[in-house]
Design a protein around this nucleic acid. Structure first.
Lengths: 116, 116
DNA sequence: ATAAAATATTCCTTGACTGGAATATTCACA
DNA sequence: TGTGAATATTCCAGTCAAGGAATATTTTAT
């Protein structure tokens, strides 16, 4: 029985938007409030809130209130998942991954067999 | 001088589409032709070709002709990049990542100072 | 040369997402 | 209670990307 690592697209979709990616990369440094994110990335506050909502629903960040501010912080889980998923591709660059050659060999054999 | 790992969105965008992700996960096993991908994933051939074009332009796959077939194969580079990028998040789950507490401390100090 | 197989491309329509602008909400504090 | 600061939400318009269907292209083999 083989185990196949499967990834869900919500994490990837959340990260695929340029400004959202910038937010994530900023938060990697440390948690920030909405206003700080907006000013540092030169984005308008409403857009930042909207992006943070997407990130939040994807589980990539979490909020904590501090007075009337909201401090957003990265969450480990989705990144861990993504990392695990990537591990199932490690063979691509860590070993030789010569499967293509095998396929080509197979094709040659098949054609020799069908039309000798 | 600090080094900040920055990710580009093209790889993520390419992977964020569900059917494209399925194709990538299939190709992880071994290279396949367009028709094989289509039948295994129960997708129509034109859509598979279109998705493969996106993956190709993102550098995630590469083609090789074999008769009138086209064999698609994963390419390591983008996955390696993504993996490197993820490494800059490892602190999230490998150490304690207590930065939030520091921020909250700072806030308290600031407010004490402003309105004692 | 012609036909068939495999793949790529084009056109069209539709749904989703993003930014902008305005407005609503929440919270602390005078 | 009312005001200001910080954040969230809503509505709108424009854009982009995906699937469907039809067609074009390429390669092989007769």
């Amino acid at each position: 029985m083989e185990y196949i690592q499967i990834m869900n697209t919500t994490t990837l979709t959340a990260l695929a938007e340029p400004n959202r990616l910038r937010i994530v990369e900023l938060l990697r440094e440390k948690p920030y409030s909405v206003g700080e994110i907006a000013s540092r990335l030169k984005l308008r506050q409403p857009q930042v809130s909207k992006h943070l909502r997407v990130l939040s629903e994807a589980g990539l960040v979490e909020v904590r209130p501090a007075a009337q501010q909201r401090i957003y912080q990265l969450q480990a889980a989705p990144f861990e998942e993504l990392d695990n998923w990537l591990n199932s591709f490690k063979a691509l660059w860590e070993s030789r991954y010569g499967a293509l050659d095998e396929v080509l060999e197979e094709l040659k054999k098949k054609r020799r067999k069908e039309a000798p």
